[in-house]
Design a protein around this nucleic acid. Structure first.
Lengths: 332, 332
DNA sequence: CTGTTAGCGCCTTCAG
DNA sequence: CTGAAGGCGCTAACAG
């Protein structure tokens, strides 16, 4: 009654008439244990409602079957979709995960990495808060704790990573605009020290060049990835080129701003937007031409898979960088 | 070089010339340890880069300073905002948290609860996947593991909980419409077995009654909280009452659907929407009249605080249910 | 195939 | 104020 401490291996051992070593073997599927013994033990475990104590086990093995995940933002569907992909894969493989919020702050990210190390996670998946790295990456390497980057790379850091093929996504999206016999195609890009923004910009330029479209530098503008800058930049572009027909926008939030601008300025004109990302609100966009859909949950699963292989010391060449192909959707 | 196992209490003890017992005392701020001893020990800890091994500590104390969080959906800004509030509070108080995804599925939720129990979390915060409960709640009670519900209640379950004051939010929003000298005010509600949907509907009715507005049952429709149903229901309402001026919509997703309907059907007419929730995309809404903003991160923090008090056995009366007042914003 | 033994790193009486 | 000793629950040699 009441605070019945939960049964331990010893209890099972007594109940079954074996030593704890045998119980342990059954637990770990050690093949050299007699079939009938195994059965007896299993029955006792069931009877007593025995469950291993993962803490004791971890203390012994110094493996926790726990993976840390670092995300720069919780209220961001993209990161969370990737996190979901990660979690699903891990859970299906006997690991559990642990998401923490770095709040776009490399310092906090580093602190969280230290905390995770302390908690003895078996590995870490990081959606980096910045493309500029930090000493914690080195720490992880020294301690030989495997980690995988997701969505962004770190400049100058050799590391396993899984991310969208940003270049290709941008290239194809812009290509579709060009093949639609576009006039000018403007770009609302992002900070060039964010690898994904840079790659998308490069994709734009490459597509333009490939098809011999003149690149008008005035029609290439950079925002900060947030709604307001999209709004502002859309205005600027239209002032630059009142006849503008196509805009390629590299992320969802700036695109929301741009749509808002168009809405408010009742641009009856047929501006067409090609952009990365999709979300619950996409139905409200009125200028959608091409959408680049990132395979986020696949990216997450891929990252988790890679990490587990590292943990199991599969000796894959280092580093592995997977670029997952996005889906390009052209709307009517 | 290389695999230098990390220093243990014993290393510190040797370095400082004391026993491990003393090191432990320093770590736990035991007052009966001489000041200079404490200093010596601290210096050694710093020098060796000592960090406690929380696993060993947990094995001994059977407390993990870890809290499990269950969320029905990762790609949901509202849940994740609450999660963020929780995490912040916990981290500031020496606890870490552990978010898992129940995928709107009570079975998975139960399974995750069992997993968390196994992992020996000190407590759990649950955003319930369903208002209908399940045996895991009883399990938690039996094992005397504290838990707090967030955002939704469970029918027939006495439990600590923190949530938005849905009734009041709805009441006030509708009141503002009425005071704006509205004609009919329609309602797009949700499944009545979800407590929050039910409470919001009640708030609507109460406000209507208080001001003596006739409740037209044809103008009260229920969706499933998703975009499509908002779209469909907006259409139905306008067919019911082509002169409709105000609609109160109980969540963001149905509201997106409704806005989409209005957009496509170029309702130049001045329909005004009062609705729960706000998000990155709110700028794109064109019929906003009143917004009910849930204080999600406060709710999260509150839930975390309550849970920690339970864990520390503060004997508060049981159960505690906090209803946090939402902010009501009236737009021009 | 099974048991014995010796810890993993820490906390906690109980003595001194 | 400090130390010695035992044990939390489990695993991993090493014997047999």
């Amino acid at each position: 009654m009441g605070t019945n401490r939960s049964p331990t291996m010893r209890d099972v051992a007594v109940c079954a008439g074996y030593s704890t070593a045998t119980i342990s073997r059954v637990l770990n599927n050690d093949p050299r244990v007699a079939e009938h013994t195994r059965n007896r033990v299993m029955v006792c475990m069931k009877k007593l409602g025995y469950r291993v104590n993962p803490i004791a086990r971890s203390l012994k093995t110094s493996r926790t079957h726990t993976i840390g995940i670092l995300s720069p933002e919780f209220q961001n569907d993209f990161f969370m979709s990737a996190a979901e992909g990660i979690e699903n894969y891990l859970r299906a493989n006997g690991y559990i995960s642990f998401i923490c919020n770095s709040r776009e702050n490399p310092e906090e990210e580093a602190e969280l990495v230290r905390m995770m190390i302390e908690k003895q996670v078996d590995g870490i998946i990081i959606i980096p808060a910045s493309s500029r790295g930090g000493e914690h990456y080195q720490l992880l390497r020294e301690l030989e704790i495997p980690y995988v980057l997701v969505d962004r790379l770190i400049d100058g850091l050799e590391a396993d990573a899984v991310l969208t093929d940003n270049f290709r996504g941008a290239f194809t999206a812009v290509e579709r605009c060009i093949l639609g016999r576009a006039g000018n195609i403007a770009l609302i890009g992002g900070p060039l020290d964010i690898t994904s923004a840079r790659e998308r910009t490069e994709g734009y330029r490459a597509a333009m060049e490939k098809y011999g479209k003149a690149i008008v530098e005035e029609l290439i503008v950079c925002g900060d990835m947030h709604v307001e800058s999209g709004y502002r930049l859309m205005g600027e572009l239209l002032r630059q080129d009142p006849q503008l027909q196509y805009v390629f926008i590299i992320n969802l939030f700036m695109r929301i701003g741009a749509e808002k601008y168009l809405l408010e300025h009742k641009s009856a004109r047929d501006i067409r937007i090609a952009a990365f990302d999709e979300s619950a609100i996409s139905p409200l966009f009125t200028h959608t031409w091409v959408t680049v859909r990132q395979p986020l949950s696949r990216i997450g699963a891929q990252a988790a898979r890679l990490l587990l292989r590292r943990i199991q010391n599969d000796n894959l060449p280092f580093p592995q960088v997977y670029r997952e192909t996005p889906e390009i959707i052209t709307h009517s």
